[in-house]
Design a protein around this nucleic acid. Sequence first.
DNA 1: CTGAAAGCGCTTACAG
DNA 2: CTGAAAGCGCTTACAG
Lengths: 349, 349
Amino acid sequence: MVGMRDVAKEAGVSVSTVSLVVNKTGYVSDDMRAKVEAAMQSLNYIPNELARNLYRNRTNTIGVIVPTILHPFFAALTAHLQREFAGRGLKTLLCSTADAATGESEYVNMLQRHMMDGIIMTAHTEHQPDYWTSIRRPIVAFDRILGEGVPSVRSDHEAGGRAIARQLIDSGARHVVLVGGPRSQFTEGTTFPTVRYHLTVEHMLADAGIACDYVEAGAVTDVVAHEATATAIFERYPDVDAIVGSDVVAAMALQEAGRRGIQVPTDLQIIAYDGTMAAELAGKRLTMVRQDFPAIAAALAEQMDRQIEAENKPSRGSQSESAGQSGADDPVQLGQIVPVSFIAGETTR
Amino acid sequence: MVGMRDVAKEAGVSVSTVSLVVNKTGYVSDDMRAKVEAAMQSLNYIPNELARNLYRNRTNTIGVIVPTILHPFFAALTAHLQREFAGRGLKTLLCSTADAATGESEYVNMLQRHMMDGIIMTAHTEHQPDYWTSIRRPIVAFDRILGEGVPSVRSDHEAGGRAIARQLIDSGARHVVLVGGPRSQFTEGTTFPTVRYHLTVEHMLADAGIACDYVEAGAVTDVVAHEATATAIFERYPDVDAIVGSDVVAAMALQEAGRRGIQVPTDLQIIAYDGTMAAELAGKRLTMVRQDFPAIAAALAEQMDRQIEAENKPSRGSQSESAGQSGADDPVQLGQIVPVSFIAGETTR
DNA sequence: CTGAAAGCGCTTACAG
DNA sequence: CTGAAAGCGCTTACAG
């Protein structure tokens, strides 16, 4: 492997000079530069990034922790993050928890070993807030509060919920079924986020005197399970006339409705939450609440940049307010909220 | 940051000893080990992987080059690769070419700067074979031949094509439309792979005297374009009675058929190629040819392992037969082929 | 079994 | 403007 030393020897200069030329930093006379460049050419020199990484203690890599990109929601989120990071000179390490036996801990370890510069956390976690707070390295959460000092970004699920409820009320729905995550997670500090839109819908429907039942969907990682969920809805609630769930659930519900000869939207309305490509592929154009992936990715990347910057120039204070936390004069926005949009399709009246 | 030196000082031993303990390698007396472990505990020592990376000239990271994981096919492939790599102690760097202005070159550069140990190449490339051959680092291609010495893995598209043709012939199809990549790429050395199933289908249908037209789909990166494609098919070929295309195309065709009141499968059969989740979400259970993602991922990872191994213990020969090529007594399987399966659904007769 | 030393390939003050 | 030197944090022969 040809290194800087070889180039220096070939060009008859010092290693420092070669470094200056490679990095286009500092002043180098034109003939020195020419000699070095010629040597690099002839030796086919390619700098080894690993040495730089060690020196700078940086990899320019961000880990994106998702349950699995087999699910279109996380595929979309990850794709947009990758694009956003690439524009900022950052690489994206794909960290799936669906397969990792140890869940996210394995990736957090990697963060602490400096294999990455930060983590975007978008998966469910069993860890308590103090776990996350104690990591003291750049972490940004998506759609959940991990702990104090860990900034987060989420969609405006309350607005999403209101739009859905309004549609259902205005169209005269009578018996709505909501499909979502485990009901046991409907708590204040939950890391299951879409809870918020469910609760909003439930309250508004209750106020309007519309029946509303809740069905737990299969695990987010198991797409096939959603088919069983769809079947279960119709079995359990034969008079259901509106179903609200994620894109995948909505698509499967529509498919099952077709099989049962139920007319959509005449006899059954379906509303998809998320607005990923999965919603486009269904039997009809689904009415949906779309999350703004580009905006979410931009906000997450922005917060990540801040975290990393804060880590690099530690505040003038004590150790304790170091990594992962910015000073008081630049407060990290906790819970930045991104708007959603309601898009009418062929599955609502 | 607390380093090995701090631990050594705290424990009253040398850095070497700490290293031995951390790596659980070589012999260390029990009391030494105990002292070191106590020191690591109390100092909360975490080894810095970057130093190791530099020393070993390895990152244990593989770049997976895909057009975009917004497309379910590449999402599935990437997800399975990540899982497979994780099992082998390798990390997955997500490399999307849809956004990278420079296409794959940027990622190849990173490979040469040792930011990753290898690349899985699954996207289309404009580069000629000698480009790929000259890289001399671990590369494995999916579904395309990049150049001599670059091993590849692909599905048995010929078998997929035969299964499709058989279904169409047996069910009495009269006018089939195939949807796929740019026809200009239907050449021997193409890096658009599914060409193979299209050609197989065309030949068999021609032999059976069945009309068959070809329609170019939008770019793989643009999912919405597929909807326009679906519309175009019905406009251009009003008497079409069978459509064959990727999952996404098939789903959109089914949706459009519904809008036009065309009965599936009575008046129109639809066959999806790939068998990703996209095929499950459509209005009906699509009949499909499914590629075996777990097997593909395993084969790709296996080839990658070999490439990396070959790079680490360079053969006894000259430089020229070094990295990326294994010796003659352990021939790399060029073009390893993975079986596909035909799954009948609700969209064929 | 343990430690001093050299080195992984680069970068960056610091003298000249 | 250029070079000698120290150092990033670890690993691995090599003496003892």
